[in-house]
Simulated assay, not measured.
Amino acid sequence: MSSHDNGTDDGPGVTIRCQDNSAVGVTFCDRFSFDEDSVHYAVELRAPGLTARANEVVAWTWDSDLAPFLEGLASDYRGWDGERSWETNDKDLTVAAVFRSGGYVGLTWALRPWPRAAGGWAASVTTWLEAGEQMSSFATDVRRFLSVEPMERPAGA
């Protein structure tokens, strides 16, 4: 299930919680932009015993972004074979999607900030959604979150 909420800084945000375990979730928050070409945002992963955050994931307006990927999954609500995947240009956020019988989509969210740096880290969680309305609603929420007009970078950020 997804919700359009106020993120962690009282700004716009989107949270997706796993249908199988609501303690597992992903939040998109703390969005800012320097120009019309990109939107920067934070991604937080949560699960029992895990909290991980990447502070500056970048969505480029000229590239294939997360929203079209999610919309494509939503449009294929009858299912597909194998795994579909998406990643940011920097490979700091990746999503792998699988279809499970009964009409559910499993999204495995992986954060790997500084993927080429020594001592880097990685974390992942998997959320399950209904392939139809829940997936479609989530895709719409993410599109809204990523397509907001450019904003100033928050003070102190």
Rank of each mutant, 00 (worst) to 15 (best):
P68M: 07
S124F: 01
S22R: 08
F69A: 03
E149G: 14
V98T: 13
T8L: 07
D30G: 12
P113G: 06
L50D: 02
W128C: 00
D37S: 15
V57T: 10
E130R: 09
W62H: 15
V57I: 15
S2V: 07
R112N: 09
Y41S: 06
L45H: 09
M151W: 09
A97K: 03
S22Q: 08
A131E: 03
S22M: 04
K91S: 14
Y77H: 12
E71M: 09
E56Q: 08
A42K: 10
W128M: 04
A96V: 12
V105R: 00
G132A: 14
E152Y: 11
S22T: 08
S137I: 04
E83Y: 02
P12I: 06
L129E: 02
T15G: 10
R46Y: 02
A52L: 02
I16M: 13
R78P: 03
L50I: 05
E130G: 12
T15S: 15
S85M: 08
D141K: 11
Y41T: 07
P68N: 07
A157H: 13
S147Y: 08
H40Q: 06
E71Q: 14
T15R: 14
G13E: 09
E152D: 15
G7I: 02
E133D: 13
C18S: 15
L107I: 06
A118C: 03
G72M: 03
G102V: 01
Q134R: 06
E87R: 15
A122L: 01
S147A: 12
D63M: 13
W121I: 00
P154N: 10
R100V: 01
V105Y: 01
S38D: 09
W62C: 13
R31E: 08
A52E: 03
R31C: 06
A52F: 04
G25Y: 09
G102M: 01
A139L: 07
T108Y: 02
T108A: 04
R53F: 03
D90W: 01
F145Y: 13
D63Q: 15
A157L: 14
R144V: 13
R153D: 05
A131G: 04
A117M: 09
E149K: 15
N21F: 00
S33K: 08
G102K: 02
H40V: 09
L50C: 03
L107M: 06
F28I: 11
D37C: 14
R116P: 00
A74H: 08
P154W: 10
S38E: 14
V39Y: 01
Y77V: 10
D81C: 03
S85L: 05
A97R: 03
P150E: 14
L111V: 08
